[in-house]
Structure formats: C-alpha cells, structure tokens
C-alpha cells in the first residue's frame, strides 16, 4: 500500500489577533501548527500502513518553513515527506492549490509507486473551504469520498474499500474501489504520539523539496494567482451594531427575572402565546 497524506501548515488560529486599527491579521509571532483536521487523516493512513504494510508519504504545499510540519509528521511515523514550494504557487486559491498538489501526487506516484489512497483533512482552519480534497480527486480522476468517519474494510487484493461517510441526518455506508481520495472527519481516531525511534529518524530525515518544475508542472498559468479564478476583493471587519444592548435592571422591590421577561415579550409580542402553547403541549 502506498498512501499519500496532504497536510497543511497553518497559523494557530487560536492565537491570531486582528489589528484593531488597520483590520489586518497580525501574523508575526503566531506559531504554526499542522492543520488539526489533517492529523486525523495522517493517523488513519498510519493505521492502514501498520495493518497492510507499505509506506505513507506526507505532502504539503507551502513556504520553505512548512518543512517543520513535515518533520513533525515524520515523528508520528510517516515514511517520507515532500515539500512543494515555489513562489509561483503564491496566492493560489483552491483550484490552483488542487492543481499543484495533484501534479505533485502524480510525480510522487512516478517516483515511489502510484498511491492506493490519498488522504486529506476535512478542511483547513485558515482556508476553511473543504474544497482542496475534492479538487485533487477530480484532477487525478480518483473516486472522492469526503466526511469519512471510518474505514470499515479494506481489501488490498480485491482493491475494494468500505467507508462510513457522514451525511445529513445519518451515516452512509459505501463500498468503492482503490485508488480513491478520502477526506477524513475530525474526532474519528486518536492521534498517536510517535515512537522515540521515529522521532530520532525524523530529525535526521531528508525532506524532499520540489519546486514547480521538479513536481512536473508544465503550465505555470495554472498556478498561483494566475491559476486562481477567485479573487479576494475586499477584506473588512464585521460591522458593529449602532446601539449597545439595553441593560435591564430590577425595579424597586421587584424581580429582575420578571423585568427581563416583560421586556422580552414586549419586543416579541407573539412569542408568549407560542411558548405557552408549547409549554402546554400543543
């Protein structure tokens, strides 16, 4: 089995601040992490490799510093890491990102054997689109299964896979074929800590670095800003409401709770009747 896992290095959004005056993101000093959703994809890939043998290749597209995230993935037990980095990729939207990643995955396949499964996370915490996974699948012509909660069965010889997929109002159990792309749902497994041996070899491991040409990109027009059909025209802070909340106070000798309720029902005249009907079970 050869499994490719796409991970993204993202700013730890819990620590991002917006500049109060300029409304720009203050990235300086914000630590970066592996996109938390991608860890579930990585863990699932490692489990399949441990069960069926083979290798896990982690792939990221990002600035040279994204090497840190790849090394981290190696400490969890990934077998090799590929960093796709080139200034031509700057400003990529999801379509251009999926083009670059798909091209690199093809090259990975030529170099180390075609992948049986490509994993992505559900979505990133900075892009937040959940579009790159489907984009890669379509570009590579892979079967696409997103929001996967469980890999229920895998038959490497028969080339079949049974997956549980989160749908609206329930879980779809579906059977498909390899190769496929799986976008893994969060909270579906417990991410391992990695062994001492893995940590040691990760520290020494060589990260494969590819620019656009190395990865096999022929048409740079499909990368970066040029290859991105979407355009961010405006970035702004949410508007404040003009008035602040009206603070309710308890009347002399009266109850604050009753005062609040009176105010609420005065503003929402029909609500009281509706709630009463509900309370009486109509």
């Amino acid at each position: 089995m050869h499994i490719v896992v796409c991970i993204k290095q993202v700013p730890d959004s819990a620590q991002i601040r917006v500049h109060p005056v300029t409304n720009t993101i203050m990235r300086q000093g914000v630590p970066t992490i592996i996109n938390p959703y991608d860890l579930f994809a990585l863990e699932e890939a490692l489990r399949l490799r441990d069960r069926f043998g083979g290798a896990v290749t982690v792939l990221t597209m990002g600035p040279p510093s994204a090497e840190d995230s790849l090394r981290k993935a190696l400490t969890f037990g990934a077998d090799r890491a590929v960093l796709l980095t080139d200034r031509f990729f700057a400003g990529s939207d999801t379509l251009a990102t999926s083009f670059a990643l798909a091209t690199a995955i093809t090259r990975i396949g030529e170099t180390w054997g075609a992948p049986d499964i490509v994993f992505t996370g559900k979505q990133t915490i900075d892009g937040d689109t959940a579009q790159v996974g489907p984009g890669i699948a379509k570009r590579l012509g892979l079967i696409q299964v997103t929001y996967v909660a469980k890999v229920a069965e895998l038959d490497p010889e028969g080339r079949t896979i049974t997956l549980e997929r989160r749908a609206e109002g329930g879980t779809q159990v579906l059977k498909s074929q390899l190769p496929c792309l799986i976008a893994m749902l969060e909270g579906t497994n417990e991410v391992r800590r990695g062994t001492m041996a893995d940590a040691l070899s990760a520290a020494r491991a060589e990260i494969v670095k590819w620019n656009a040409k190395d990865a096999g990109v022929e048409d740079l027009g499909k990368c970066g800003l040029k290859g991105s059909p979407t355009i961010v025209k405006r970035v702004f802070a949410p508007a404040a409401r003009s008035e602040k909340a009206k603070v309710i106070e308890a009347p002399e000798g009266g109850s604050l709770a009753d005062a609040l309720i009176a105010d609420v029902f005065a503003r929402q005249p029909h609500l009281e009747a509706d709630l009463t009907a509900l309370a009486r079970g109509f």
């Binding site: 959004s13 991002i16 601040r17 917006v18 409304n23 993101i25 915490i125 900075d126 937040d128 059909p229 979407t230 355009i231 961010v232 025209k233 405006r234 970035v235 702004f236 802070a237 949410p238």
Partner: peptide, 15 residues
C-alpha cells in the same frame, strides 16, 4: 468569514 471569523472577505469569480 475568514481567519476564524475575525474578518470578512468578499470573493469574486470575475472571468
């Protein structure tokens, strides 16, 4: 919303 909702951005597909 972008960056965890701290900002909003308006996106176009012009061409």
């Amino acid at each position: 919303p972008t960056f965890g909702g701290s900002l909003l951005c308006t996106i176009y597909t012009l061409n």
